[in-house]
Amino acid sequence: MKGIVFNILEEMVIEKCGMAAWNELLETALPDEDGAFTAGKSYPDENLFALVHAASAKLETPAEQIISGLGEYMFGELAKRYPIFIEQAPDLKTFLLSVDQVIHTEVRKLYDDPNLPSFEYTQLDSGALLMEYRSPRKLCILAEGLIRGAAHHYQTPITLSHPTCMHTGSDHCDLIVEFGDEQ
């Protein structure tokens, strides 16, 4: 996982709970690390999960909720860092369709060897968008949060369902986005 994801988690924790809380999380979750994260550098995925679990314990909140929250927060931060991707897409659906082939493709140019998921898209007759998520990191909940963050940004109400999941033995996750204003 790239440092940028840790940076965003850090910002989220500091914004919500303060600097002391983040220091404490670092000390409990990663006692052997120096806690400095550089955006473009890769760090072990376990470190992120360790931080998430420490936060989950401290806040007495399920880890999924923290990851999902991180996703939502992450969207805002990514949008701040890379406004061009948002500007290029006039609406939420166009934006989501561009994640795999445009945005993450650009990310591959900017970051050295990033670990990115793959998305396959199907536009359903109902107007909903089916995103098939595949990644060995199984961060589908982060993806959910990112989608929610995007929906919030585009001020488009959505209904998100997740009927097939890698965490229940499937080889991929189905994320179905129904767009509120089309109903």
């Binding site: 500091i14 303060g18 600097m19 002391a20 983040w22 220091n23 120096d34 806690g35 400095a36």
Partner: peptide, 9 residues
Amino acid sequence: PYIKAYERE
């Protein structure tokens, strides 16, 4: 806590 944060930064 910001001293630590500063050093990390």
